[in-house]
Protein backbone atom coordinates (compact mmCIF):
# COMPACT_ATOMS: atom_id res chain seq x y z
CA UNK A 1 0.00 0.00 0.00
CA UNK A 2 2.62 2.46 1.06
CA UNK A 3 5.09 1.51 -1.67
CA UNK A 4 2.49 1.78 -4.41
CA UNK A 5 1.56 5.34 -3.48
CA UNK A 6 5.25 6.20 -3.19
CA UNK A 7 5.71 4.90 -6.70
CA UNK A 8 2.63 6.80 -7.90
CA UNK A 9 3.91 10.13 -6.58
CA UNK A 10 7.26 9.37 -8.16
CA UNK A 11 6.06 8.51 -11.68
CA UNK A 12 3.43 11.26 -11.71
CA UNK A 13 6.06 13.96 -12.09
CA UNK A 14 7.77 12.36 -15.06
CA UNK A 15 4.95 12.25 -17.60
CA UNK A 16 1.46 13.12 -16.34
CA UNK A 17 2.47 16.37 -14.68
CA UNK A 18 5.84 16.99 -16.25
CA UNK A 19 6.84 20.42 -14.93
CA UNK A 20 8.05 21.82 -18.25
CA UNK A 21 5.79 20.32 -20.88
CA UNK A 22 2.51 19.99 -18.98
CA UNK A 23 2.55 22.49 -16.13
CA UNK A 24 4.83 24.86 -18.10
CA UNK A 25 6.54 26.07 -14.95
CA UNK A 26 10.13 27.20 -14.67
CA UNK A 27 10.35 28.26 -18.27
CA UNK A 28 12.88 31.04 -17.69
CA UNK A 29 15.87 28.96 -16.54
CA UNK A 30 14.92 26.08 -18.84
CA UNK A 31 15.11 28.12 -22.01
CA UNK A 32 18.10 30.15 -20.89
CA UNK A 33 20.47 27.30 -20.02
CA UNK A 34 19.42 24.78 -22.66
CA UNK A 35 22.01 25.96 -25.19
CA UNK A 36 24.21 22.95 -24.42
CA UNK A 37 23.71 19.55 -22.82
CA UNK A 38 26.40 20.30 -20.20
CA UNK A 39 24.55 23.36 -18.94
CA UNK A 40 21.25 21.50 -18.92
CA UNK A 41 22.73 18.70 -16.81
CA UNK A 42 24.27 21.15 -14.35
CA UNK A 43 21.02 23.08 -14.04
CA UNK A 44 18.96 19.92 -13.48
CA UNK A 45 21.33 18.72 -10.77
CA UNK A 46 21.05 22.08 -9.03
CA UNK A 47 17.25 22.07 -9.26
CA UNK A 48 17.06 18.45 -8.04
CA UNK A 49 19.13 19.22 -4.97
CA UNK A 50 17.17 22.35 -4.07
CA UNK A 51 13.79 20.74 -4.69
CA UNK A 52 14.66 17.63 -2.68
CA UNK A 53 16.11 19.65 0.20
CA UNK A 54 13.29 22.16 0.41
CA UNK A 55 10.59 19.50 0.06
CA UNK A 56 12.13 17.45 2.89
CA UNK A 57 12.51 20.40 5.26
CA UNK A 58 9.11 21.94 4.50
CA UNK A 59 7.34 18.59 4.81
CA UNK A 60 9.11 17.89 8.09
CA UNK A 61 8.16 21.20 9.71
CA UNK A 62 4.81 21.66 7.96
CA UNK A 63 2.83 21.36 11.21
CA UNK A 64 4.64 24.18 13.00
CA UNK A 65 4.64 26.72 10.15
CA UNK A 66 2.00 29.40 10.84
CA UNK A 67 -0.29 29.69 7.84
CA UNK A 68 0.00 33.47 7.55
CA UNK A 69 3.74 33.62 6.97
CA UNK A 70 4.24 30.35 5.13
CA UNK A 71 5.36 31.84 1.80
CA UNK A 72 8.25 33.89 3.29
CA UNK A 73 9.34 30.82 5.26
CA UNK A 74 9.31 28.67 2.11
CA UNK A 75 11.33 31.29 0.26
CA UNK A 76 13.97 31.52 2.98
CA UNK A 77 14.36 27.72 3.08
CA UNK A 78 14.65 27.56 -0.71
CA UNK A 79 17.12 30.46 -0.78
CA UNK A 80 19.31 28.68 1.77
CA UNK A 81 19.54 25.57 -0.39
CA UNK A 82 20.21 27.66 -3.49
CA UNK A 83 23.08 29.36 -1.65
CA UNK A 84 24.55 25.93 -0.87
CA UNK A 85 24.31 24.87 -4.53
CA UNK A 86 25.82 28.17 -5.60
CA UNK A 87 28.84 27.82 -3.30
CA UNK A 88 29.40 24.14 -4.17
CA UNK A 89 29.28 24.81 -7.92
CA UNK A 90 31.59 27.78 -7.51
CA UNK A 91 34.12 25.67 -5.62
CA UNK A 92 34.10 22.42 -7.61
CA UNK A 93 32.87 23.16 -11.16
CA UNK A 94 33.88 26.80 -11.81
CA UNK A 95 33.47 26.51 -15.60
CA UNK A 96 29.87 25.36 -15.22
CA UNK A 97 29.30 28.08 -12.61
CA UNK A 98 30.53 30.66 -15.13
CA UNK A 99 28.35 29.45 -17.97
CA UNK A 100 25.20 29.17 -15.86
CA UNK A 101 25.80 32.73 -14.61
CA UNK A 102 22.87 34.41 -12.88
CA UNK A 103 20.52 31.55 -13.73
CA UNK A 104 21.96 29.44 -10.92
CA UNK A 105 20.94 31.87 -8.13
CA UNK A 106 17.68 32.42 -9.98
CA UNK A 107 16.60 28.90 -8.98
CA UNK A 108 15.20 30.73 -5.92
CA UNK A 109 12.40 32.21 -7.98
CA UNK A 110 11.87 29.11 -10.10
CA UNK A 111 8.13 28.57 -10.00
CA UNK A 112 8.51 24.76 -9.91
CA UNK A 113 10.13 24.74 -6.48
CA UNK A 114 7.84 27.20 -4.72
CA UNK A 115 4.92 25.57 -6.49
CA UNK A 116 5.77 22.09 -5.15
CA UNK A 117 6.39 23.49 -1.67
CA UNK A 118 3.02 25.21 -1.62
CA UNK A 119 0.98 22.58 -3.45
CA UNK A 120 2.54 19.37 -2.16
CA UNK A 121 5.20 19.40 0.54
CA UNK A 122 3.25 21.60 2.94
CA UNK A 123 0.32 19.16 2.92
CA UNK A 124 1.86 15.70 2.60
CA UNK A 125 4.03 13.41 4.76
CA UNK A 126 7.79 13.22 4.40
CA UNK A 127 8.10 10.09 2.28
CA UNK A 128 5.57 11.24 -0.31
CA UNK A 129 7.24 14.64 -0.53
CA UNK A 130 10.57 12.97 -1.29
CA UNK A 131 8.94 10.88 -4.03
CA UNK A 132 7.25 13.96 -5.42
CA UNK A 133 10.51 15.93 -5.47
CA UNK A 134 12.41 13.12 -7.19
CA UNK A 135 9.70 12.56 -9.79
CA UNK A 136 9.34 16.23 -10.64
CA UNK A 137 13.13 16.66 -10.82
CA UNK A 138 13.55 13.73 -13.19
CA UNK A 139 10.71 15.04 -15.35
CA UNK A 140 12.41 18.44 -15.42
CA UNK A 141 15.77 16.87 -16.25
CA UNK A 142 14.35 14.75 -19.10
CA UNK A 143 12.56 17.72 -20.64
CA UNK A 144 15.63 19.91 -20.31
CA UNK A 145 17.86 17.22 -21.85
CA UNK A 146 15.53 16.83 -24.83
CA UNK A 147 15.48 20.59 -25.47
CA UNK A 148 19.22 21.07 -24.99
CA UNK A 149 20.08 18.02 -27.10
CA UNK A 150 18.04 19.37 -30.02
CA UNK A 151 19.37 22.90 -29.59
CA UNK A 152 23.00 21.84 -29.43
CA UNK A 153 22.90 19.38 -32.32
CA UNK A 154 20.86 21.64 -34.60
CA UNK A 155 22.57 24.85 -33.54
CA UNK A 156 26.19 23.77 -33.71
CA UNK A 157 25.93 20.64 -35.86
CA UNK A 158 27.74 18.51 -33.30
CA UNK A 159 27.31 17.20 -29.78
CA UNK A 160 29.93 17.21 -27.06
CA UNK A 161 29.54 16.33 -23.41
CA UNK A 162 32.08 17.59 -20.89
CA UNK A 163 34.55 18.51 -23.63
CA UNK A 164 34.44 15.12 -25.36
CA UNK A 165 32.97 15.37 -28.87
CA UNK A 166 30.47 12.60 -29.46
CA UNK A 167 29.51 13.10 -33.10
CA UNK A 168 29.34 15.68 -35.86
CA UNK A 169 26.49 15.78 -38.32
CA UNK A 170 27.57 15.66 -42.00
CA UNK A 171 26.07 18.83 -43.50
CA UNK A 172 25.01 20.67 -40.36
CA UNK A 173 28.59 20.45 -39.06
CA UNK A 174 29.75 22.87 -41.71
CA UNK A 175 26.64 25.02 -41.88
CA UNK A 176 25.02 24.93 -38.45
CA UNK A 177 21.62 26.53 -37.95
CA UNK A 178 22.88 29.11 -35.52
CA UNK A 179 19.38 30.37 -34.74
CA UNK A 180 18.83 27.40 -32.43
CA UNK A 181 21.51 28.46 -29.97
CA UNK A 182 20.24 32.05 -30.05
CA UNK A 183 17.31 33.00 -27.81
CA UNK A 184 14.63 33.04 -30.56
CA UNK A 185 15.52 29.43 -31.38
CA UNK A 186 14.60 28.43 -27.85
CA UNK A 187 11.11 29.86 -28.26
CA UNK A 188 10.76 28.22 -31.66
CA UNK A 189 11.83 24.78 -30.44
CA UNK A 190 9.77 24.95 -27.26
CA UNK A 191 6.66 25.97 -29.22
CA UNK A 192 7.11 23.20 -31.79
CA UNK A 193 7.81 20.58 -29.09
CA UNK A 194 4.69 21.55 -27.15
CA UNK A 195 2.58 21.41 -30.30
CA UNK A 196 4.08 18.04 -31.27
CA UNK A 197 3.44 16.53 -27.84
CA UNK A 198 -0.15 17.73 -27.98
CA UNK A 199 -0.60 16.37 -31.49
CA UNK A 200 0.67 12.96 -30.39
CA UNK A 201 -1.71 13.05 -27.45
CA UNK A 202 1.03 12.80 -24.83
CA UNK A 203 -0.38 15.92 -23.20
CA UNK A 204 -3.85 17.39 -23.45
CA UNK A 205 -4.68 20.28 -25.75
CA UNK A 206 -6.47 23.31 -24.37
Amino acid sequence: MKTTSFWKEFTKGIVISNPLFVLVLGLCPALAVSTSVDNALGMSIGVTFVLLGSNIIISAIRKIIPNMVRIPIFIVIIATFVTIVNLVFHAYVPSLYESLGIYLPLIVVNCIILGRAEAFASKNPLLHSIADALGISIGFMLALLIISFLRETLGTGSLSIFGARLFTLPILGEHPMAIFVLPPGAFLLMGLLLALLRRLGVIKSE
Binding site: P184, F187, L188, A195, L196, R199, S205, E206
Partner: peptide, 15 residues
Protein backbone atom coordinates in the same frame (compact mmCIF):
# COMPACT_ATOMS: atom_id res chain seq x y z
CA UNK B 1 -4.63 24.18 -35.51
CA UNK B 2 -5.95 22.59 -32.31
CA UNK B 3 -2.59 21.39 -31.08
CA UNK B 4 -1.04 24.82 -31.64
CA UNK B 5 -3.71 26.76 -29.72
CA UNK B 6 -2.67 28.79 -26.71
CA UNK B 7 0.88 28.44 -25.55
CA UNK B 8 2.66 26.92 -28.58
CA UNK B 9 1.52 29.65 -30.90
CA UNK B 10 2.44 32.24 -28.25
CA UNK B 11 5.95 30.79 -28.11
CA UNK B 12 6.29 31.02 -31.88
CA UNK B 13 5.15 34.64 -31.72
CA UNK B 14 7.81 35.26 -29.10
CA UNK B 15 10.38 33.79 -31.48
Amino acid sequence: PVSMKGLPVALLTAM
